[in-house]
């Protein structure tokens, strides 16, 4: 029996692959900042750590880059895969670029399944475009955004020099 198209648009093979083999899901012992996010509806959790690095000064004008991003957590395939794909997408990017990607992913999630207006967004998001189908299921949008919320929070802390451990249950 073939799977219905609605479900296939949600659970793309890429998403299921990241769910089964999550990337970056190995919390680094040292970090510049940490964030813990929970989705109160389902109890899904993500704990995420970032480490900044300096880019080679000529090309990027000495701006900070996201040197390392690692995480752990429990949750549904959408939240776990989204965090995994995000890690691959943002690692090594400068912080301005990370903020642009985060905004583009937010636009994708709020597109109600109609797709992105901007081709630049589509190109930038790469594999994360696979989450387009999630936007058709409003109840699942929060799942896809959980890791991104943790990243945004952790980076804000890192820039502010706040390296305190995030509250919330460990692991």
């Amino acid at each position: 029996m073939s799977e219905p198209s609605g479900l296939e648009s949600l659970y793309r093979e890429l998403i299921l692959d990241h769910y089964r083999r999550p990337r970056g899901k190995d919390l680094a012992p040292t970090f510049d900042a940490e964030s813990f996010q929970v989705n109160p509806v389902c109890g899904d959790e993500v704990r995420l750590r970032v480490k900044l690095g300096a880019a080679s000064s000529d090309e990027l004008g000495g701006t900070d880059i996201l040197g390392q991003v690692t995480w752990t957590g429990t949750g549904c395939s959408i939240s776990q895969a989204s965090t995994s794909v995000m890690c691959e997408l943002v690692r090594g990017e400068d912080l301005g670029r990370v903020a642009e990607l985060e905004a583009a992913f937010g636009r994708l999630m709020h597109s109600r399944g109609l797709g992105l207006e901007s081709e630049a967004d589509e190109d930038a998001l790469g594999d994360a475009i696979a989450f387009e189908g999630v936007a058709k299921y409003p109840a699942r949008v929060k799942c896809a955004l959980l890791g991104w919320m943790a990243l945004k929070d952790a980076l804000a802390k890192a820039v502010a020099g706040d390296s305190s451990p995030a509250p919330g249950p460990k692991g």
Binding site: P4, G6, L7, L10, Y11, V41, C42, G43, D44, G75, C76, S77, I78, Y137, R140, C143
Partner: peptide, 25 residues
């Protein structure tokens, strides 16, 4: 399999179930 994923799969077949902690953690 996370309950939300199970619920989504069943929903795709027209089957409505509840997923989550059902207000009883």
């Amino acid at each position: 399999v996370h309950p939300h994923d199970a619920g989504q799969y069943l929903d795709d077949r027209g089957i409505a179930v509840r997923v989550g902690h059902h207000c009883a953690q």
